[in-house]
């Protein structure tokens, strides 16, 4: 029992940054834009937040900077893909390359060639609910984690129960119809991108300001790409995205635990497990995926 509760606690922790990234990506894709800049955005946000926190001594300022970086990079994505109407794959990958390169470049300038990753003196603490009870291992989480899970119903409500959500989805499905209904496709897509960017920034900040309290080059380690896969797995729906993030987090937690238990298999097998399972899950569910119809299509009025 205790094993399971500990595993569940780890699952929630591991799922948190993925969930932020996937929810952010989901909103952006629902508006018709694939943001492949997610990996770089999360990395630069994690880095920027970390530097700001370390220099100022305030983790809150660090958090603000991380979110601001997510928003700014999304603004750039918007300029390339919405305003200029460039290919979204190229724009997104360009941003990931740019942001990752910039993060590593600035890291070298600020910290030189340190072999031990720099750490914060003070990072976000865990918030214990049910302390002393047997549920403690599940509910010893960072505030980010609780917030991420609250975001799921909030976003579901926003997407399906508000005029804003209806308009956002219409822009991703049929921008012409939205345009003739007097909805600004440009503005709606920008808003979606900025919201998504803020969430990606939070995902990065969680890693460097809370879970690790430190920054390393490999801090994101493909979580952005996994988030994109989880959006497809989740069929662009908040609750299913949550299920996808939990599935990935659970497998990751399990493999870590199995490694620690000393099961006699090469550790690479364990490392592979969550990724292999993600591919399998996508292969099964992805065939019935209902992509937003206008995904990847820049919108231009005819004539």
């Amino acid at each position: 029992m205790e094993f399971l509760l500990t595993l569940l606690g780890a699952t929630l922790r591991i799922a948190t940054p993925i969930l932020y990234g996937a929810l952010g990506e989901m909103i952006v894709e629902r508006a018709g834009i694939l943001n492949l800049g997610i990996e770089g955005t999360m990395l630069l946000s994690a880095f920027g937040g970390f530097v700001a926190a370390q220099l100022s001594g305030s983790i809150y300022l660090g958090l603000l900077i991380a979110v601001a970086i997510g928003v700014l990079l999304s603004l750039l994505m918007g300029f390339l893909s919405i305003t200029l109407g460039l290919n979204q794959h190229v724009s997104g990958l360009g941003i990931t390359l740019f942001a990752s390169g910039l993060a590593l470049f600035l890291f070298r300038i600020i910290y030189g060639g340190e072999s031990i990753p720099p750490a914060l003196e003070e990072s976000f603490p865990q918030l214990r609910i049910f302390g002393g009870t047997s549920l403690e291992p599940v509910f010893s989480q960072y505030v980010f984690t609780y917030a991420a899970f609250l975001l799921v119903p909030l976003l579901a409500w926003l997407l399906y129960r508000t005029s804003f959500g209806l308009r956002l989805r219409s822009v991703g499905e049929n921008p012409e119809a939205a345009d003739t209904a007097g909805i600004s496709v440009f503005r709606t897509r920008y808003v979606a991108l900025l919201m998504g960017g803020a969430l990606m920034g939070l995902g990065g900040a969680f890693l460097s300001l809370a879970q690790l309290g430190a920054f390393t080059h490999g801090i994101i380690n493909g979580r952005g790409w996994v988030a994109i896969a989880i959006v497809i797995f989740g069929n662009w729906r908040p609750w299913r995205v949550l299920a996808g993030a939990l599935l990935f987090g659970g497998l990751q937690a399990l493999q870590l635990r199995l490694q620690a238990e000393g099961v006699q298999l090469p550790y690479e097998i364990f490392l592979m497990l969550p990724y292999v399972m993600t591919i399998v899950a996508i292969a099964i569910t992805g065939r019935n995926a209902s992509y937003p119809a206008a995904l990847l299509k820049p919108y231009r009025r005819e004539g």
Binding site: L166, R167, E173, N174, A293
Partner: peptide, 13 residues
């Protein structure tokens, strides 16, 4: 918008 209901399509905007 094919994924929307008739009402959503008509009231959109």
């Amino acid at each position: 918008v094919p994924t929307f209901t008739v009402a959503e399509n008509i009231l959109l905007g």
